[in-house]
Amino acid sequence: MTPLNGYLLLAAFLFSIGLAGALTRRNAILVLAGIELMLNAANLNFIAFWRYGTHPEALTGTMFAIFSISIAAAEAAVGLGLILAVYRHFKTTDLDEIDSLKG
């Protein structure tokens, strides 16, 4: 197994853990944490492909990872703001109890 395959397998496993958490946790904040984990796994793929790819001097993978981290930061801020707004309305962050659109 080449080093690249090792990194890709690790990223795939982290992505699956994040997906499982996002689909099964009841706490909305931890669902968001699972989504962050999935974004991190994608970043690991970008960096590994950049390092073991054919043209590392073009910096494409690094740039992609930097922009992806910025998107993730913006998404975390908006997501946690949404969770606070939902909590103010429903008085809970349990996603199984937040089941009505009209409130």
């Binding site: 890709l8 699956s16 996002a22 689909l23 099964t24 946790r25 009841r26 996603l95």
Partner: peptide, 22 residues
């Protein structure tokens, strides 16, 4: 309260399937 949602088995199966394909 419960930690995991009522449909936790579906989520686990989906995540396992995604990992298998990847």
């Amino acid at each position: 309260t419960e930690v995991f949602s009522k449909s936790w088995l579906t989520g686990l199966v989906l995540a396992g399937g995604v990992f298998t394909v990847l």
